[in-house]
Amino acid sequence: MTTLLKYHTLGNDYLVADPELGAPSPGATATRVLCDRRTGIGADGVLYGPLPATRPTAGPADTFDVRVFNADGSECARNANGLRLFARYLREHGRTTQDEITLRTPGGAVNVRLGRPVTAPGTIDLGSWTHHSPALADGEELVGASLRLGPDTGLHVTAVHNGVPHLVSLVDDATPELAARIGPEIVAYPGFTERPNAELLTVEDRRTLRLQIWERGVGYAPASGSGACAAACAAYRLGLTDPSVTVVMPGGTVAVEITRDERVLLSGSSSYVGQIALAEEFVPHLRAELPR
């Protein structure tokens, strides 16, 4: 029997597909089938792992390998909300007893500190970031620059790359309607060599940010962990905020701290939704994309 588990945080929901529970490698088509909210289970993405090659390492933290897939089937290098959920899954289901673990993804390794009890907020260390523009092949930084999407739409943008490319735009009033209108244009901007996620940011004060998000491969997102970190990094670089801020999103609120050595820490809560046993008639849709 193929069993999946579902977790939720900040308006984002993810399925954990563990090979030890019979889950096949999800691939693009299988991920879309699973994440469809009408004909599948429904989710923003799939966390596949821990991968069979994973071995706990000596030291203060266990290490596990995981792959993250968006709902449209594309693979995500890193995902702050998803990885926090996956860390909780590992300890909640006996795969580790540690409070601190390391998760390795195609976008690099991140460290997660779990709360006690496991239902308490956890903290993920996303490491350092850069402001290199996804639009510029020469690697030039993009900080507070002008971007014109059309004759009537000009933005002040800052690029943030923390394993995933983001483009943070300062706006007077970040609303879902504004995100839906210009978010797709930012993601699809023809000059970009790598599609970024689009964050529309309103700075309320030096310790509070309000954020709306349009994600590549997802569309409108009520929340994003890495997006919240990108917004905090951009606002800090522009001198608009303190190193520690609260980021308010429609899906919930997180705390972001930029350390003295410019590492980014994200803290937030999560919840376990339930366990799903897939019907036999549904499983062939998934197994069609097992690795050759």
Rank of each mutant, 00 (worst) to 15 (best):
Y7C: 03
G11T: 03
Y14K: 00
V16N: 11
D18A: 13
E20V: 08
G22I: 10
G22T: 11
A23N: 04
S25Q: 07
P26V: 08
A28E: 14
A30Y: 12
A30T: 09
T31G: 04
L34W: 05
R37A: 03
T39E: 09
G40A: 07
D44G: 08
G45M: 07
G45Q: 00
L51P: 00
T54M: 06
P56L: 14
A61V: 04
A61H: 10
F64V: 10
V66S: 07
F69Q: 02
A71P: 00
S74A: 09
S74W: 08
C76F: 02
A77M: 11
G82C: 02
L90Q: 01
L90P: 08
T97R: 08
T97W: 06
T97G: 12
Q98A: 13
E100S: 13
T102L: 15
T102P: 00
T102Y: 01
L103R: 04
R104W: 05
G107I: 11
A109I: 11
A109T: 07
V110L: 10
N111I: 06
N111W: 00
L114C: 02
G115P: 10
G115L: 11
P117F: 11
T119H: 13
I124Q: 05
G127T: 09
P134T: 11
A135C: 12
A137G: 08
G139I: 01
E140A: 12
G154R: 01
V157H: 14
V160W: 11
V164A: 14
P165S: 07
R181Y: 01
I182W: 02
G183S: 01
G183R: 01
Y189S: 03
P190E: 07
G191W: 06
G191A: 04
G191Q: 14
F192Y: 12
R195K: 15
R195N: 06
L201E: 04
T202N: 03
R206H: 13
R207D: 15
E215P: 04
G217Y: 01
V218H: 00
P222E: 12
P222W: 10
S224I: 04
G225M: 03
A234T: 07
A235M: 09
R237W: 07
G239R: 07
A255W: 02
E257R: 15
T259N: 07
R260A: 13
D261P: 01
E262K: 13
L266V: 04
S270F: 06
Y272T: 03
V273Q: 03
V273G: 02
G274T: 00
I276P: 02
V283L: 06
P284C: 07
H285C: 09
A288Q: 15
R292M: 05
